[in-house]
Design a protein around this nucleic acid. Structure first.
Lengths: 113, 113
DNA sequence: AACAGGTACTTTGTATTGCAAAGTACCAAG
DNA sequence: CTTGGTACTTTGCAATACAAAGTACCTGTT
């Protein structure tokens, strides 16, 4: 196992939500309520209290950017979208995710050591 | 989304390692080094410092039990095995895991909200 | 019999993070 | 101008993966 694999595995847990958000944003810009709704629509429970700080972290990491936009009713919204760096991160997270799933599932049939 | 689904999703992150350990033990009893080796064999990096406390928690939860056994060289080992309750937990974790994977993967093609 | 080395288990401390909840602020309607 | 709803931010808490230090046992050597 390489150090990269080790790091990826360690990052996997905290990377899943990030992966999910990036997958949502790949379809176009969205603001927090859109993102939460999209995740809840596929039975991934997340609450706004979790997503807001994560979006801020991703913004600080230049994975995302946002623009202010008027709301039909209420205060303005932050509409997030992926940066080009975000697309790179998304590809990496998807690869890690697929490998992680394969690893967990391979335990179903792995022979005893 | 039901409360159970919500709870399962919340538990998912911390449940993955537990699932992996139970999948290893389904094949027969093993002690810590066996388990760590089995997980590392499928590229799931875990270290003993993580597994030991988790095994203790699972023992306290009656998911696992253990017996002391002599070692060919060194102090005796705790050989862990699943309890019947552990088998129930394993089934539940596997269902949650499969659903979780489906949820994350469904975001690849989900339409924009 | 004492000690050194290796194995096995336990305990403690730290950083991360998902979540809840309180707080701030903006806008529209009455 | 006040009320209610929406949107974002900040703070505090609990869980846990990990690292590292600590304890203890067994075997072989001197």
């Amino acid at each position: 196992m390489t150090k990269e694999t080790a790091a990826s595995t360690a990052q996997m847990r905290k990377g899943v939500l990030e992966l999910c958000i990036l997958r949502v944003l790949r379809q176009g810009e969205a603001y927090t309520s859109d993102i939460v709704a999209a995740l809840q629509a596929v039975d991934l429970l997340v609450v706004e209290g979790t997503v807001y700080p994560l979006l801020s972290r991703m913004k600080n990491a230049d994975t995302l950017t946002y623009r202010w936009a008027e709301s039909p009713s209420g205060p303005p919204r932050k509409y997030y979208s992926m940066t080009s760096e975000g697309e790179t991160v998304l590809k990496a997270l998807e690869a890690s995710w697929d490998q992680f799933v394969d690893s967990v599932n391979s335990l179903s049939t792995a022979p005893k050591i």
